[in-house]
Design a protein around this nucleic acid. Structure first.
Length: 243
DNA sequence: AATCCTGACAACCGCGTGCAG
DNA sequence: ACTGCACGCGGTTGTCAGGAT
């Protein structure tokens, strides 16, 4: 079955040959791509427009950067991913010449493993181990159970992920720092309620707002650099924080 | 030498979005 | 307002080379 965009056409799939590359480069260099759907016919290729577009953007563009990622590029990827998550296109914008596909592959094949090896959750960038809390059960009970299990298994649990934690429970946990250490980083939205350093005063203020409203469950709907948008179901607001 | 396993890279697929008609 | 098309994006799968057994 072909793509939706070219299901009626008989198209070639799989790896591109040097001859196909040459035809595509020649065509786009002299005519531009215009409408991608018309490129295969004009360039004399048995491919669909979507495949041509992908091949050009990821490998044939003259400004595409090839080769291994530098340490600086790796650092940028991790930092931006911490903020935007799996938005590969957005991350790639910070790396001139790199494509979203390349960044995604590098993340999945290399960075993800490095973070895990460092004891960090690649999704949240928080310390491992973290277990998904069962929202139907009291989270403090869950965490107590985790501590008991970890003691039996002789493994360490020293942090709690504050994502989707009801405010009342956060307050309870916060009151027992020796038993339930709260951890997070200033650029990790999922840990917003665990941040207590000097860079997060604005977030503390936001927490107070939630508490005054007796918000039960807080989730993060969207965020961008320096600005997080929160939602409590009935209300939404914006919180700026220093970078 | 043959087979299996793994990692890196390339390409495909389906969905969401924007836009023109 | 609705529809169809094209594009862009992120998740997933396929391919292949190199190392391990």
């Amino acid at each position: 079955m072909g793509h939706r965009c070219c299901s009626k056409q008989k198209v070639k799939r799989g790896l591109w040959s040097p001859e196909e590359d040459e035809k595509l480069v020649k065509h786009i260099s002299s005519h531009g791509h215009g409408s991608w759907s018309s490129v295969p016919k004009l360039a004399g290729l048995q491919r669909c427009g979507k495949s041509c577009r992908l091949r050009w953007i990821n490998y044939l563009r003259p400004d595409v950067k090839r080769g291994s990622f530098s340490e600086e590029e790796e650092r940028v990827i991790i930092e931006v991913h911490r903020i935007v998550g799996n938005r590969w296109a957005q991350i790639a914008k910070h790396l001139p010449g790199r494509t979203d596909n390349e960044v995604k592959n590098f993340w999945n094949s290399s960075i993800k493993k490095k973070l895990l090896a460092q004891g960090l959750d690649p999704n949240t960038h928080n310390l491992l181990p973290h277990r998904k809390f069962n929202n139907t059960k009291n989270n403090i009970d869950n965490f107590s159970t985790m501590k008991e299990e970890s003691a039996l298994a002789n493994t360490a649990i020293d942090a709690i992920n504050m994502s989707s934690l009801p405010i009342a429970e956060f307050q309870n946990l916060k009151a027992m720092p020796d038993q339930f250490p709260i951890m997070g980083s200033s650029s990790d939205p999922s840990a917003a309620f665990g941040i207590l350093d000097e860079n997060s005063m604005c977030l503390e203020e936001e927490v107070q707002k939630y508490l005054q409203m007796d918000a039960s469950l807080v989730s993060i709907s969207d965020f961008d650099y320096g600005v997080w948008n929160y939602s409590t179901g009935a209300h939404e607001w914006e919180c700026e924080f220093p970078l």
